[in-house]
């Protein structure tokens, strides 16, 4: 035990952290304090996701219809595989981290360096994957029409396959005037971000193709989206349609309820920020190990403390994975 105690000059000073309540050093104890409070923060987010989901239980997007992409496999629907890969990367980087802690206990400096290095690489791969996942989600794939009530209408052919709006929308030459300075010097912002197709173009294309149907955001008892008949589809699109949605942002979401996108951005973003800061902290500790700080101190407890944080990030991801992608 003596070998792992960091000599911080506070030995014997009860109020200076010299005592070891619960047999944990001051730093480790504080890290556990932080982890408990951060765990409660994340639970608050995930529980509020559950709250919103229960509120709109019959109109919530089905996750494995949303996240179907794998890099370099364009157009191949592969639900879950990529996020499973990300989970394994994070768990593996947790393993190398705990191996680094173990090597630290045995004062094997070179092993600690290598294991820390692999941990950092794993973390970087994870953050990169998450950025890619975000980009894919923001870009969207099929496109949809949003109704006046903020509901999403998606398009299917009669075989039940999804159809992208780009495949049927008609090009209507619109007279779009550029704003000029002689008409006033103030720039008037557009009300929405412009999409590739306008609502009129999608409507014209939909009416011209008899094999297209509309799928609503609502789910039936079996958890399948309700598909409207051709007549009902036309009526729905003409009466309720308002604007075209491509991809997702904080206000509109072509996959379904906008709250789904909001929570996705917020929770995976907050988690991704934790991974990012974890990578930064790991890099700092990595260089400290290289220059021999802990070798001189006679204890690698700092590695153990950042290890706790890193495992916590992994722990949170396990829950995010379940509640966003599986359940």
């Amino acid at each position: 035990m003596e070998a792992t105690v960091a000599k911080t000059g506070t030995e014997g000073k009860t109020w200076g952290g010299g005592n070891r309540p619960l047999n944990a050093s001051y730093g480790k104890m504080m890290m556990w304090f932080f982890i408990v409070s951060d765990a409660l923060t994340f639970s608050g987010f995930i529980a509020s996701y559950g709250f919103s989901r229960f509120k709109f239980i019959d109109a919530w997007p089905i996750a494995d219809e949303v996240f179907t992409h794998v890099p370099f496999l364009h157009g191949v629907p592969a639900p879950m595989y990529y996020v499973a890969f990300m989970t394994l990367v994070l768990i593996f980087s947790s393993v190398t981290m705990v191996l680094a802690v173990d090597a630290g206990h045995k004062m094997q400096k070179n092993k600690v360096i290598w294991y820390m290095f692999f941990t950092i690489i794993g973390g970087a791969v994870f953050v990169g994957s998450q950025a890619w996942e975000w980009a894919t989600f923001i870009k969207g794939d099929y496109g949809a029409v949003e109704t006046k009530g903020g509901k999403i209408l998606q398009f299917l052919d009669t075989n039940g396959e999804r159809v992208a709006i780009a495949e049927f929308a008609e090009f209507l030459p619109a007279t779009r005037e550029n704003h000029l300075e002689k008409n006033g010097i103030w720039y008037d912002a557009e009300p929405e971000t412009r999409t590739n197709y306008s609502y009129e173009e999608v409507k014209a294309g939909f009416l011209a193709n008899d094999n297209l149907l509309i799928r609503t955001q609502y789910l039936d008892e079996n958890g399948e989206h309700i598909v409207l008949s051709r007549e009902a589809s036309i009526a729905k699109l003409e009466n309720d349609g308002r604007l075209v949605v491509e991809g997702a942002n904080l206000k509109h979401n072509e996959y379904g309820h906008p709250l789904f996108a909001d929570f996705f951005f917020f929770i995976t973003g907050f988690h991704g920020f934790h991974v990012f800061s974890g990578v930064i902290i790991n890099i700092i500790i990595f260089f400290n190990v290289i220059i021999g700080t802990y070798e001189r101190r006679g204890s690698y407890e700092m590695v153990e403390k950042v290890g706790l944080y890193w495992h916590f990030v992994d722990l949170v991801w396990v829950f995010v994975f379940t509640f966003f992608y599986l359940v």
Partner: peptide, 24 residues
């Protein structure tokens, strides 16, 4: 560590999910 977190999280989940279902 564990009891504190587990108790508070269970309580939070319980009230939020019941409330969400009620609004539904």
């Amino acid at each position: 560590v564990v009891w504190t977190a587990v108790f508070l999280i269970c309580y939070l989940i319980l009230i939020l999910l019941i409330e969400g279902d009620y609004i539904y």
